[in-house]
Structure formats: C-alpha cells, structure tokens
C-alpha cells in the first residue's frame, strides 16, 4: 500500500510517497500560480516516476498553503497543519529529536514533539519577515548574490558586520550603506545570517529547547544560519541526509499512513 503527502510552500511544492515501511518516491518543484496546480503537478510527477496512479494511494494528506482546497479538489483525503507534519517528519527521520526549527519562505516555526512525534507545543512568527526565508531573499538581492550563496559566503570570513537593527527594512538600508563604503560581501553575509538567527532565537525562547534539536525547511540548508543558531542555543543540532524541504511532505505521508490504519 502507498501513502501520499503533499506540502505546498510559498516558493516550492513537495510530494512524498511512502510504502509500508520506507520512503518510496519524492519530488520537489517550484510552485505555480495556485496551490492546486502545484499540488497536482508535484504529486503527479512523484507517482509517474514509479508508474503509479493517484488511486494507488491508500490515503493522502495535504499540508501547507491551500491544504484545504487541495483536499476539496480530491487530491488529498485529509489536510493537516504543516506544524504537525514537520514535527512528525523530523521525528520519523530522527526519533531522538524533540525540538524542530522549521524556517520556510514566509514562516518560521519552532515545534516541540514527544517521544511519539506528537505535537506538544509550537510557536509561529508574526507577520514580520525578519526571521523567515523572505529576509534572506531580500538581503541576498541587496548583496547581489543568490540566496543559496549567502550561507557559504559567511564561511569565507572571520569578521562579522553586525546589523544594528532587527527590522528587515532597516537592515536593507544598512547593507546598502555598508556596500557604498566598500564593505566586504562575506562580512555582510555573516552579519545578515547572524541577524536571521537572532530573530529565530526569539521564537526558540518562547517554546524552550528540549534536546535533540534539528532544522527543517528551506533555510535549514543555510549552514551559516545553522551555525549561528547553534552558538545562540549552546548546542549542536542533529542533521540528516534527506532534503530539509521534504520533511513536511514526509510528515504528511506518515500521518496519512496512520490515519489509513486508524480507518481500517
């Protein structure tokens, strides 16, 4: 039997197919104009890779943006919040994990789970962009580098140009100011990543830390933000091999499997 999980984010959409015991197939692609098209495309591509049809999925769960509409369109049997899905997915990969820091394009969440991977507590950022992928996106454009480069750039320097403001609008002005004065891109990138980590840490404090800790979502790929967060928390986060952006869809598929079992 196969179980599906679909996670549509603000920038990318992911799908995961599980069989009884393992990860069977997965896909990630940029989102299109509406979440239903994105969901349809990404789950379609995953199924196609294994020559499966949608009806081969015993149960499918949608999460992320438009999760309700995706269910209403018949692409999923149930919709679950991305908070539960990221918690469940991370716990399945690393059963020791209890705190998950999930940073996506628009949102940042800190999630606490129990020994069964069930949600215990969580906090999500307010509307401010400063602790989300959007902040890195804007800052990388200001620096004139790609968002993927902003993490590695930090490792090229020992110097950090501290941003004096936690606000993304003021940070942008400040970066412009430093660039005009000929500041080194790497030093600025290090400052930007540190600011980002500081904002996320404000959320971490609200939920509290229980070891082990890991990161999911697109920003988890930024090693510099990860390093700064580790410094702030005073611990090492655990890592895993899977693409960090797939964790939400994986969690959705795991919940699909549990729900299907519950219905039997």
């Amino acid at each position: 039997m196969f179980y599906g999980g679909i996670d549509v984010g603000s920038l990318t959409a992911q799908a995961v197919i599980l069989n009884e015991n393992s990860l069977y197939a997965y896909k990630s692609m940029p989102v299109s104009s509406n979440p239903i098209d994105s969901a349809s495309a990404v789950i379609g591509a995953s199924l196609q890779e294994k020559n499966l049809q949608h009806q081969d999925l015993t149960y499918c769960v949608s999460t992320g943006y438009g999760r309700e509409q995706i269910q209403k369109e018949g692409l999923a049997d149930e919709n679950i919040s991305e908070i539960s899905c990221h918690g469940k997915g991370a716990w399945w990969i690393m059963p020791r994990v209890r705190t998950i820091i999930d940073i996506g394009g628009q949102d940042a969440k800190v999630i606490r789970v129990d020994q069964e991977g069930e949600l215990v507590n969580f906090v999500m950022n307010d509307k401010c962009a400063a602790g989300t992928g959007r902040f890195l996106d804007v800052m990388s454009k200001t620096l004139g580098v790609s968002v993927e480069e902003i993490g590695p750039l930090s490792f090229k320097t020992q110097k950090v140009i501290e941003m004096s403001s936690r606000c993304s609008i003021f940070c942008e002005t400040e970066v412009h100011h430093y660039l005009q004065r000929g500041a080194d891109l790497a030093d600025l990138a290090a400052g930007i990543n540190r600011t980002m980590a500081g904002r996320v840490m404000a959320l971490v404090r609200r939920v509290g830390i229980e070891k082990e800790v890991t990161m999911t979502g697109g920003v988890a790929k930024n090693q510099a933000v990860r390093r700064e967060l580790e410094k702030l928390m005073g611990l090492k986060m655990i890592t895993y091999d899977l693409d960090s952006q797939l964790v939400g869809a994986l969690g959705a598929a795991l919940i699909a499997r549990r729900l299907a079992e519950g219905k039997q």
């Binding site: 403001s165 936690r166 400040e174 100011h177």
Partner: peptide, 8 residues
C-alpha cells in the same frame, strides 16, 4: 538600539 538605528 536594534529597533531603529541611531543613524536613521
């Protein structure tokens, strides 16, 4: 200080 920079 990190709310609005003094330079602003």
């Amino acid at each position: 200080r990190s709310m609005t920079p003094m330079s602003v």
